[in-house]
């Protein structure tokens, strides 16, 4: 029920020579508590799409409903919507501005009209949720490492207590350890707090590991919508869109071609390990 998009179409620079269709008749529904991955090559419209969901970009045509209400309906407060549907952008550098970490995280709740004490309480909660240790709270956000900046940026949105968390490539430019830490934290938010998650990523491995459902965007259209296993079956079509399946899926297919009885729908390393061990007769 939570988010429903109907026939979203968005055109940049309408009516000029630079006209460009970024979204073309995209419809979907995201129920409460789902962990959804969004994939698509650069320029496929995924960033534009997610910015529609909290009213930052107004569709040229089409409708968006949050909990059944039209977000462009009369008297609907976009500010309230934005506190319910939290969006974390790709680069934390685009939002960090305060003198220290804690005041920066307070910015969101303060904008919601909370008192300084309440805001601070929310900020502390959010910083703990993303695993930022207390010793960093008084530091300047600009002195932090890339991964820590990211955490502070996510905390900045979490402090508004959103019901839905949208993350635009939260792991771009992070090392493998930092990437796993951030994604594990996101999964924890999903599992412990029941948050609805929308994760944009270029890593098929991450998608196979974390997402319950995948939306595949291609040239502004929704190309596929289903579970990761269903979608990675179509790895040939994904390749034609400049995407791919996880590497282990290719290995599984190669093993099958050689006549070995492994499952076709392997998408994670763990599944591949189990399947291969089974072949050797070791469960």
């Amino acid at each position: 029920m939570a988010i429903r998009a109907e026939h979203l179409t968005f055109v940049y620079n309408q009516g000029t020579a630079l006209e460009q269709k970024a979204l073309d008749d995209v419809s979907f529904e995201i129920p409460d508590g789902q962990f959804v991955g969004v994939i698509g090559h650069t320029g496929s419209g995924k960033s534009t799409m997610i910015q529609h969901l909290n009213g930052l970009v107004k569709p040229t045509s089409g409708k968006i409903y949050y909990n059944g209400e039209d977000i462009y309906g009369e008297g609907y407060s976009l500010k309230t919507l934005r506190s319910k549907v939290g969006l974390v952008f790709q680069y934390p550098e685009h939002q960090l501005f305060e003198v220290d970490v804690i005041s920066d995280v307070c910015y969101g709740p303060r904008n919601l009209g909370l008192s300084p004490e309440e805001a601070r309480q929310r900020a502390e909660e959010a910083l703990r949720l993303v695993g930022m240790k207390e010793k960093y709270w008084q530091q300047s956000p600009f002195e932090l490492s890339g991964g820590q900046k990211r955490r502070v940026a996510i905390a900045g949105v979490l402090a508004m207590n959103p019901e839905v968390l949208i993350l635009d490539e939260p792991t771009a430019g992070l090392d493998p350890k930092g990437r796993d830490e951030i994604l594990d934290q996101v999964r924890e938010l999903h599992e412990k707090k029941g948050m609805t998650i929308l994760l944009v990523s270029h890593s098929m491995e991450d998608m196979a590991r974390y997402a319950q459902r995948l939306l595949v965007m291609n040239h502004g259209r929704k190309a596929f919508d289903g579970t990761p296993k269903e979608i990675f079956e179509h790895y040939k079509e994904l390749e034609s869109m400049g995407l791919a399946a996880p590497q282990v899926t290719y290995i599984a297919h190669a093993l099958r071609e050689r006549g070995l009885a492994v499952e076709e729908d392997i998408t994670t390393v763990e599944e591949a390990r189990d399947a291969i061990l089974r072949l050797f007769g070791k469960e």
């Binding site: 930052l56 500010k79 969006l87 952008f89 939002q95 969101g108 949105v157």
Partner: peptide, 13 residues
């Protein structure tokens, strides 16, 4: 534009 959007997502007006 991006910074504005990032701050508006945090309730900036």
């Amino acid at each position: 534009d991006k910074i504005m959007k990032a701050q508006m997502a945090r309730g900036a007006d």
